[in-house]
Design a protein around this nucleic acid. Sequence first.
DNA 1: CATCATAATCTCATATTAAGAGATTTTGTT
DNA 2: AACAAAATCTCTTAATATGAGATTATGATG
Lengths: 256, 256
Amino acid sequence: MKPTNSLERVLAVLEVFSEERLEWMPEDLMRELGYSRPTLYRYLKILKDAGFLMSTRNSGVTLGPKVVEMDYLTRRSDALVLHGVPYLKELTTAYSCTAMVLRWYGNKILCVVSESSAKKPISSYPRGRPMPLGRGAIARSIMAFLPRPRLLPLVERNLADLRSVGLGDTAEDVLKSLKKVRKAGFSVAYGEVTPGAVGIAAPIFDDRHYPIASVCVTIAGNLVTGALIDQIGAEVRRVALQISADQPRQGRKSKP
Amino acid sequence: MKPTNSLERVLAVLEVFSEERLEWMPEDLMRELGYSRPTLYRYLKILKDAGFLMSTRNSGVTLGPKVVEMDYLTRRSDALVLHGVPYLKELTTAYSCTAMVLRWYGNKILCVVSESSAKKPISSYPRGRPMPLGRGAIARSIMAFLPRPRLLPLVERNLADLRSVGLGDTAEDVLKSLKKVRKAGFSVAYGEVTPGAVGIAAPIFDDRHYPIASVCVTIAGNLVTGALIDQIGAEVRRVALQISADQPRQGRKSKP
DNA sequence: CATCATAATCTCATATTAAGAGATTTTGTT
DNA sequence: AACAAAATCTCTTAATATGAGATTATGATG
């Protein structure tokens, strides 16, 4: 995963920005990335000229306006956003909840669009905020449908989290729990991500039945009973499958 | 502006995505960018692995989830967004309108945050959608405060648009009109961007009194009279100056 | 299921050009 | 005006990006 060529090294500059560190000083970037002074400044100049970065008054750098513009384009081009919204509205009309579509990418889950009918929406994960893989109904709904060789390393890497939410002590136990999710077709989580909130999620598949995203409904725990959860689960599953079916058929493989 | 090194050439791939062309086929990219087949595929692989691009079923490429994640970070790190929101709320509380902060970057104006109290918001420029420089109160509020050497080429490049909204026939005439805007401290536009909507804008300055952004209020034309527009203009100007003052002092120059 | 057409990747010799040490200039502060 | 810090420049060398062409995946078709 270490950058091996100069192309990846420029992009690596953009990778260091995170919620914990939104602004960087050139000096710190040199240390963090291990680039020489002229090289780093060269990279910064290129990234600034392209609008990916901008410099702040106190000579730090932050992500720039080009990112904002590209995100706008992403909202217009993402098939899951475009096809998903009407279905999410169905769900928020039927229940007082937050409904969203989340993409799986890297080792993260990322909300790409959400709709809400709850008076006081409880989700702390708006568009673009990455969620960890180990907790919550969403991650589980996706993992449950991964082929074993792809799944196992993932489970092992996130075992601590998975254990803490009671999925099982060993990797094999976790796999068993996930098999049940697979059978049900949707997953449920009680307050794993946000206290008091119930998450109900089902996977979206690509044309090879490979899970690439998830539909999730988040609803206040005091609003739901066991029977209602099953009902919502069935609806979420239906919606996820319909969004899957809306995706264009045919095509080549893509790195998940 | 033509890419001169391989670093800029990778980034140039991201530049071709636009509202008119949200998805590209590799073959078309080769033609558009003039790259050889192996080189293009190399670039695509790197950009896909980093999440900047993703491939769709029918083997086209679109902007990817990393963009979404970075935009989330931008919302959290942009000083204008962070400081601007409370002021925008002031404006939307006082009037039934849409109030926004827009950055000036490249040859474009870009909304970075907006608030609305209008029943039916009329702006067609949400976060991230670039506006042209030649029309609207926003662009004018910024141009009016640019030093002449910076301004003149800009006016000449956008003369057709500027003329069509009645700012003057020649570049010199336009400069005169802008001088009046500068004196007033804010600019007004009647239906230049959206028919029936009045735009009222004032610039945000950096610590060298250089305009870098703008505050704009958009309000339905039938809701305002001349006197009210002046009142709103004064408020918008006040807000823009306060946001300017909130910016951290000191620092080095940045390319506008 | 075999064949075909297209898309994506690989190989490798060569020219291109990124990289970095250190000097120099620019910028803001005292 | 003088100083300190930040950013850029110069120039040589080693590193590596490039593309023609061959090769391998991949999905479509009969």
